[in-house]
Design a protein around this nucleic acid. Structure first.
Lengths: 400, 400
DNA sequence: TGACTTGGTTCGCTTGTCGAAGAAAGTGGG
DNA sequence: CCCACTTTCTTCGACAAGCGAACCAAGTCA
């Protein structure tokens, strides 16, 4: 089953919002929800009852009194329904199951070889999701981060969200001219997956999903946000008025082939020279270091060199930061977001981040940077699957 | 009176939308409105009745039958209520009155000297708006363009919208560090006007208003649009999901100080070098030509030279077009709009437009430009006041 | 023990929308 | 001329969402 309509706007006090408030601990009782949502107590009661009947919420006894009747505490059932999520990267994939409030239940990182082609890669990952959903007590499924309830029973799988490191037509679930995914061009991910599992499948660009994940977990009160994923490739996701902005063709946020000044301008895999991706991506750093005779095999090696203070690697990281900052300056001036959130493996690289920040402050309107947050995303490796899950939940949990 | 809340989203089939359909001729009867809006006939009847009672709509007899009962034709009353609009430019201001459907009733272009300061300039323009609203039959008020009903009686003034060629905090109506408006920094336009006339005042950046005007008149069915104003200065306005995107500080769209490659990089009025405005704005073209020893006094002279095929002027125009295209390429990749609409006096400059288009097609993702419209705005000099009026109408006409 | 506070439900009202039915006002064929 | 059919528009009842008022429940605190 494929879903082709755009997700509805999260309505004020809609079931998803109530669920999220309970899940995040912002609300523990109906009264809390009423205060938070602005809805009348009667309406909240009604909705909570519906959610309980759907099994999406449960009562867990009475809480502490605050001078009156004790609240009947609400919680998202552990062991309830889950959604699956896959965040595909160039060399690794993060797969997991999340409960309907968007909390990670189980998470696992798997090595992938993207060049094996879509059938092999997606087939294995789908199987892994199915295994996670079916094997509630697998202790190996628990990862170091974000597995608060990994030992609990796992309920029915309600849908799977998939993030792809390349351009995706979200509406159809098809991949369009990806630059570093040989054999994937034109592949219909949604259709392929729909033929293997009988739950709704949602496919989107990985940076979009990460933007959504970061927004929902860290910046939900902000209207406009830009998320930068700096890893093997460079991508970005855009939140406008609290909603994911995909643009006309679904390619919004794809800044990887914007031209930046670089001397000499390195050739990009797209055939042009001087693309941001060819200057500032993890893959570009590896290539550049090798060209200088430094023996590195992958991005991990580059990051280690930078951490060790290697001057060639650090200089390259600074150059990359400036290049990203240059493009981002235009984006910030144009879009005027409240926050620029940075994730991906290069986000932990201090010289890069510092150069990027400096360039941004230097090249943006003072008005635009005056209250702008420029932050590393805290959620770490689960941002992507969190966003994917939220997208699925938005489709699966009734809008009203 | 000042308005500080953001305009509500135009609801499906809301009164404003119905009004607009009637005004544009898209609908002439209740049945048309029902078909267009998707609302049931009963609901449409109800709303139309309310609009008629408010004096915003009137019945104008029966239309032609199409094989059944003849429709009762609807129209926006001529001589009904109007809103005032001021589109302030560097050397001229366009002022006018528009009916509640957004059609220009009266329009007039006045010379202004921005350096006379806000009190003098705005005082004179407000007086002009008041005069237009009070003097229904002034034949001189009729302009060459867009004055379909200039001879009709003018009704009550319901509000005034003002576009400012610099950064404006829309919420407060205050001007923030404008680059070419000496004496205007920090001026509270809304408060000043509220003290002079007793109608709602709405203030916004001129490019924002032009974007809104262009979107409502030409691209209302498109979700995402970018409007470029290329005149004495360079500005842009952003439409995201059909609504004006102002960003966190209200400075969204301000691309004038993005850096572009230029050799030598000219100094900008902001103190930096190589700003888009210092390379590609009308003011920059005048300066550059003078530096080459060509005697031009203003932008009109430059445009005449370009039209006459002067090679220095044409070369500069091409360079300006490339510079704009460079920045716009990042914007298009990032935002992925359906249309890039170009207005302002330089929009009629073919070499500039051609270079801009070429750069855009060269530097953007194929996916992003594949169906992208890159067009001159047809509405001409009334785009700005049209947008201003729409903003006012959105506040004045009840949301539901 | 009783006044007060907080939490939550029940019930009736308002509002907005829709669908069905039907009235109004035409066209056009026999 | 009559009657079937179309189009336009209104009326009326049904229905759903949400709210406020009243009320019940269950505490705290003096």
């Amino acid at each position: 089953m494929t879903i082709d309509d755009a997700p509805r706007e999260a309505l004020r006090g809609g079931p998803r919002e109530l669920l999220r408030w309970v899940a995040t601990g912002a609300a523990v009782s109906r009264a809390d929800l009423s205060r938070l949502s602005g809805l009348s107590p009667s309406t909240v009661s009604q909705r909570v009852e519906a959610l309980i009947n759907q099994g999406l919420l449960e009562e867990t006894g009475a809480g502490r009194s605050r001078g009156g009747r004790r609240p009947r505490q609400l919680a998202v059932p552990t062991g309830g329904a889950v959604v699956g999520a896959i965040d595909l990267g160039a060399h690794h994939a993060r797969v997991g199951t999340l409960d309907l409030s968007g909390r990670v239940v189980q998470g696992r990182t798997l090595p992938v070889r993207i060049e094996d082609g879509p059938e092999a890669v997606l087939g294995a990952l789908l199987a892994e999701v199915a295994a996670l959903a079916a094997a509630p007590d697998d202790p190996a499924a628990s990862s170091a981060t974000g597995s608060p309830t990994s030992g609990a029973a796992v309920g029915a799988l309600r849908g799977i969200g998939i993030g792809i490191p390349g351009p995706v037509q979200h509406a159809t679930g098809r991949i369009v001219s990806p630059s570093r995914m040989p054999g994937w061009n034109g592949f219909d991910v949604a259709a392929f997956c729909a033929g293997r599992v009988d739950v709704p499948i949602i496919v989107d660009n990985d940076a979009n999903l990460m933007a959504l994940g970061a927004h929902r977990t860290a910046y939900s009160e902000l209207d406009h946000a830009v998320y930068i994923k700096a890893g093997t490739g460079i991508g970005s996701g855009v939140i406008s008025s609290g909603r994911l902005h995909r643009g006309a063709q679904g390619s919004a946020g794809d800044i990887s082939h914007c031209r930046v000044v670089a001397d000499p301008a390195p050739l990009c895999s797209c055939g042009n020279a001087g693309c941001l991706e060819a200057v500032a991506s993890g893959a570009a750093l590896v290539t550049a270091l090798r060209d200088q005779g430094v023996p590195v095999s992958d991005l991990t090696g580059v990051i280690r060199l930078i951490d060790d203070g290697d001057r060639h690697a650090t200089a390259l990281a600074r150059q990359a930061g400036r290049a990203i900052g240059e493009i981002l300056a235009v984006v910030v001036n144009f879009f005027n977001p409240q926050v620029v959130a940075i994730g991906g493996r290069l986000a932990d690289c201090e010289p890069l981040l510092a150069s990027m920040r400096a360039t941004l402050y230097e090249r943006c309107l003072p008005l635009a940077t005056q209250t702008l947050l420029i932050e590393r995303v805290a959620t770490g490796q689960d941002v992507g699957i969190t966003g994917a899950a939220h997208l699925v939940i938005d489709h699966v949990v009734a809008a009203n």
